[in-house]
Amino acid sequence: MAHIATFTRSTPDTAARVWVDDNGEVTWGDVATVVNPWDEYSLEETIVQAKSCGGDSTVIAIGGAINDDALKHSIAMGLQNALRIDEPGADMHDSLVWSALAAGAIRKLDDVDLIIFGKESVDVATDQHTFQLARRLGWTMLSYVAAIIDIDFEARAITVEKTLEQGKQTVAARLPAVISVMKGINDPRYPNFLGIRKAAKARIPVWSADDLGLTLPRPATAVLRYMNPPARDVSTEIVHGENVDAKAESLVARLLEEKVL
């Protein structure tokens, strides 16, 4: 039976103000977290693909208990199994540490054929961990997928449409594979009542590096400091004029002065 895995994490609500506090830590006050916005699409795609092949689906988070919210939301959407990997003291912001733990989880599950990621994680603002997981597993990586055209788990084959800056590319590859999907690939569902009830009752197993038989790599990066972006220092000038043509000409004159045309 086919087994599709996906990874998610809890991130601050997209409308939340996020800032650096006096201790230099990132905070968003007491605003609730949501699933990483890019993962709405990977969760939906995992549910759809698992259903269409009659396979199994597992959602995994790497990190602390804050991620249980994202895992429960995933179950409420329709993911079958949830799992969290936690190793206190490990630097989960380092993509090599993260991908070592993720690879350990996939190896322990043993029967995963396909991993579906959202395009990136909004907190760390990168997708490097997705590629590094694929390399650690030695699996094919298909990034920035706009559509899955065909998957044949029996024949171990997958065909997708990939997004490049210059256009769209149709690519065929072998399973097992890691893919990352773009917004627009599907229309993510909202959890229904039954799903929310299932999620509320779910007990999420937590595995440690020891459980995975792993010695973690040394982090290859270090965060030196977080900073609040400089305030945007603008005084807004509302352009006036007798009519729209006068307003337009007056705006063009100002833009020429600013040397941005």
């Binding site: 965060v223 977080y226 609040n228």
Partner: peptide, 16 residues
Amino acid sequence: RAAYAGKVLMEMTANT
């Protein structure tokens, strides 16, 4: 680099 969708900036280094 930017993090949290540009709401926060961070400075990082690689120690390799």
